[in-house]
């Protein structure tokens, strides 16, 4: 299965959520590949705490795979990460591998040459032979990377693979509108996909939304001190829901809701239960949200046509 993670703007927590989602799936026993398609500013290496790929690798990253025809490196996080959580993954009985395909340092965006979509399809096919799940982290907003994967997934050899899209956005009026534009706009995903041979209806059916940095009014009691403040927040939350419903981004299309977590705001990293129970630096609700999102990826009823 291919999961494409994209967002309307930067700073939505797309990458940190995507990495944690990938980690949860590996814990469940799947072989997972995480592809850093954010060619301009690869960040997955930092989140997985892989020193050699912190800002992308020196050679043989995904950028070079496309522009210089090198093989793409596959860094098993259990061997290359400094994070205890990831290093311990193989010791958990039945856990699968979590492998990073990093971007290149000083990669930058590139324009798509004629052979790249086929090469991209070749990469996805190859990874599908080896991995149960591939998470493709696309950069924020419209980019060549989005065009590239839309063109690759429209190719006949990828028809048998399941491709799904997760659009990440913060829970504010502006971000909801921007995410809507990213999917439905004139230069949006559906229109761009249609130009490349996708059926826009089917493509839309493969898109779900992830709301990030959501203030959970039940959990964050401490931060909501005055009753008037609570009432206003609840009313505003209701207004946002109505707006999302109207824009076809409502509950039925909601793949996950990631609560605001101060720790992840400061330190984007993969967290596990020990960060919650032992060190108590992360919230249980955050881990649970990653777990729920990971479970939704393969919940067929959730992904059926609406």
């Amino acid at each position: 299965m291919l999961i494409f993670a994209t967002s309307d703007k930067g700073g939505t927590g797309r990458s940190v959520t995507g990495c944690n989602m990938a980690y949860r799936r590996a814990l469940q026993g799947e072989a997972v590949a995480y592809l850093d398609f954010d060619f301009g500013s690869p960040t997955a290496g930092a989140i997985f705490d892989v020193p050699e790929a912190e800002r992308g690798v020196d050679a043989s990253g995904l950028h070079s795979y496309f522009t210089r025809h090198t093989e793409s490196q596959q860094l098993d996080t259990a061997l290359h990460s400094d994070s205890d959580t990831l290093r311990d993954l193989p010791r958990i009985s039945g856990a699968g591998r979590l492998v990073l395909l990093p971007g290149d340092k000083d990669g930058g965006e590139f324009s798509i040459s004629a052979d790249m979509p086929a090469r991209c399809a070749q990469l996805f096919l190859r990874l599908d032979r080896e991995f149960d799940l591939c998470v493709v982290d696309l950069s924020a907003g419209r980019s060549y990377a989005v065009d590239l994967v839309l063109e690759a997934t429209a190719r006949p050899e990828l028809a048998a693979l399941t491709s799904r899209w997760l659009v990440f956005h913060r829970w504010t009026k502006q971000h909801i509108l921007a995410a809507h534009g990213l999917v439905f706009g004139e230069r949006g995903l559906l229109k761009a996909g249609e130009r490349r041979g996708h059926d826009p209806q089917r493509l839309n059916n493969s898109v779900r939304y992830v709301r990030t940095a959501v203030v959970d009014l039940c959990v964050d009691q401490e931060s909501v001190t005055r009753p008037a403040q609570g009432a206003w927040l609840r009313a505003y939350d209701q207004k946002l829901r109505e707006q999302a419903d109207k824009l076809r981004m409502g509950r039925a299309r909601l793949a996950g809701q990631i609560p605001f977590d101060p720790m992840l705001q400061w330190s984007e990293q993969v967290i596990d239960d020990s960060d919650v129970s032992g060190l108590k630096i992360a919230n249980q609700a955050t881990v649970q949200a990653f777990e729920d999102l990971a479970a939704k990826l393969s919940d067929e009823r959730f992904w059926e046509g609406l």
Binding site: A118, A121, Q122, L125, R126, D128, R129, P156, E157, L158, A159, A160, L161
Partner: peptide, 12 residues
């Protein structure tokens, strides 16, 4: 890569 991309396969 070329063989695996062939349209003679169902790519499953």
């Amino acid at each position: 890569g070329e063989v695996q991309q062939s349209n003679r396969l169902d790519h499953t």
